[in-house]
Amino acid sequence: MSDSSTSARSLEDVVARVLPAVASIQAGSGRGTGFFVRSDSLLTNAHVVGSESTVRIQTAAKQYQGRVVRLSPGTDLALIQVYNADPQQPYLSLGSGRSVRAGQEVIAVGFALGVLSNTVTRGIVSALRTTRSVLLIQTDAAINPGNSGGPLVDRDGTVVGVNSMRVNGAQGSEGLAFAVAIDHGTELLQGNAPLTAAATPAQDLNRMMNGSSETSDLRERGETEYRRTLEQAVRSAAQIDDYWDRYSKSCLVSAARVGDRSWFAVFEPNGVRIVATSAYNCETWLGEVRTAAEGIRTALVAASETGRRHGVYPGVMRDLRRQHRLDWTGWER
């Protein structure tokens, strides 16, 4: 009885020490988790920040702005520097993924779905895996969307990995969770050259588990290209968002709700109605929105067609669009 309660308190103490150093990361329309490794620096996943150069950071106590200073796609890690850092900001001690053993208890901390703070899951280390030169920690601790980029810590609260991915098993078997060993994060902090690779650790693992083939490789390349097109489109969409919001209150009578962004209404026949008279030239405003929106539509339609030719599943493309707030009811018509 005494041993059980001591263990429970010990786990709660570890979590209480770790949580103040964990933050939600918002990069454009994407969200994930990061954690402070110095009072002015955080680590997260490269796929969390995507192509964004600046991010918003939210801890339990403070908000910060930051910039991506180092990116390592080959290890799926990114280093963020904080503007106007608080010298008192708690940060975590870094250990080594090479020191963990199968059966060792670990704790994954993050923001599930990018918004649910203080998400803590406990599990054990199942194995250490190496893909190319990247050391990965396989664990049964749940790593869910939004948890990506959070710390995987041992029972001392020392970081041993960066929660990174869940990979589907072959033939419908249960997915497996992996963290990138913190050793790669330490190298990034020390200024070592980022690892560049044609494939991410998740892609390499999928090949290992499901078997590589010409078809699967083609599908993977198609998915990568589709994601790249979406990242470019998001930057243009943000500019349209700003222009739409600036004049819609003065010019707009109604707009059909047909997708993730209000101005997607311009894609629909008679989807937008504007006022007849206004202090602003609303016809010109709407025409410019239509022109800019058409550029995004043309790019995404072409990317979808290329994705289909490469064998990318429609559901995968739909999920990627939703992640980037670029879904519209008309994409699959």
Rank of each mutant, 00 (worst) to 15 (best):
M1D: 14
S2V: 10
S2W: 08
D3G: 02
L11M: 15
V14T: 12
A16M: 00
L19Y: 01
P20T: 05
S24V: 08
I25T: 04
I25F: 04
G28C: 10
S39H: 13
D40N: 14
L43H: 05
T44D: 03
V49P: 10
V55H: 04
I57L: 09
A60F: 04
A60I: 08
P73A: 07
T75F: 04
Y83N: 15
Y83D: 15
A85K: 03
S93I: 02
R98G: 08
S99R: 14
V100C: 09
A102N: 08
G103P: 01
E105S: 14
I107E: 02
F111R: 00
L113D: 11
S117H: 10
N118R: 13
T121P: 04
T121D: 09
S126L: 05
T131R: 11
T131Q: 11
V134M: 02
V134W: 02
T139D: 06
D140K: 08
I143P: 06
G146Y: 07
G146S: 02
V160I: 15
G161Q: 00
N163K: 03
N168R: 11
S173W: 04
V180N: 08
I182D: 05
I182L: 07
T186Q: 14
E187H: 12
A198P: 01
A199P: 00
L205S: 13
G222S: 07
Q232W: 00
Y243H: 02
W244P: 04
R246V: 03
S250V: 10
L252R: 08
A255T: 13
A255L: 09
V258Q: 06
R261G: 05
R261V: 09
S262I: 03
E268K: 13
W285K: 07
G295T: 03
A299R: 10
S304V: 03
T306R: 14
G307M: 06
G311T: 11
Y313A: 15
V316A: 12
R318I: 08
W328M: 09
